[in-house]
Amino acid sequence: MHNPEKKSGLIKSSEITDRDIFRNRRAIIKASMALGGGAIAAGSIAGGLAMANTETGAGGDNGFQATDELTAKETATSYNNFYELGTDKGDPLRYANRLVTEPWSVVIDGECDKPGTYTLEDILKPHPTEERIYRLRCVEAWSMVIPWNGFSLADLLKRFEPRSTAKYVAFETILDPDRLPGQRSRVLDWPYREGLRMDEAMHPLTMIATGMYGETIPNQNGAPLRLVVPWKYGYKSIKSIVRISFTETQPPTSWNMSAPHEYGFFSNVNPGVSHPRWSQAKERRLAGKTKGVSSLFAPKIETQLLNGYADQVASLYEGMDLKKFY
């Protein structure tokens, strides 16, 4: 893949400030809710801060709290793409116990001053978790709305003191072919790999999830810790992470390695860039009824540029042709 026009650079102080503002806004809204003002108060504050984005359904919380109807927990935990456990949507739940998450450690390496092997406890301990409701858009043209529990990836990455040479962050999923049934077949070149440009990784919306629906994240959804990048196709949100590397050059990523013309490095949700098998203009929202004949009659919905998070993340790609860098 080509090098993107926009240089990745370091964490700019402005980005950190932005994040604090996001937080404050969240705090204000939460406080108003607590005071009993409810939705009306929250709405007016959001409107006053001119950040409500009703058109995309992004809600008045800078993308952190989607207002779309939630996907049922049973749906989100039984219809999964986690090829390590099998390629059928039901396989991840069926073989969930093949994924052994204890003990768990994460290797941190590459362009940073605090590399090493960290236990799961070391990784998670300093980070209070919060609930964020994100839309999840799969490249297969279906989508869900999921309440995740976790924290911003940036908070974790900063602890390892990335150097100025760190332009990208690479992630790897656990490799355990003896136990994971899917890793015995050559569907993909294992281990599963993903990557983000540094500024994408440092964006406040990019999160590490350790739970969903207020509970510990189930194995089939990527226990014990996974990435969630809501404006990219689902396969970028790598599951069951065992390695995080800071790299100078763009790291190889699994689906891009498997079919480079179909899956780009960026993989931003884009209704204007069609995939050979799935038109990306629309999506089937898996939220409501999944039972009974009436569940068969529901139109698809329009897919939003950057999955409705354009207000938050479009600036990352200023000057970049997103049709070329898909």
Binding site: T75, Y79, R284, L286, T290, K291, G292, V293, S295, L296
Partner: peptide
């Protein structure tokens, strides 16, 4: 097939 859809055994994406 109809019965599977009716009882919810068709999974999370019954259309698919």
């Amino acid at each position: 097939l109809v019965q599977q859809v009716q009882t919810g055994n068709a999974g999370a994406n019954p259309i698919e």
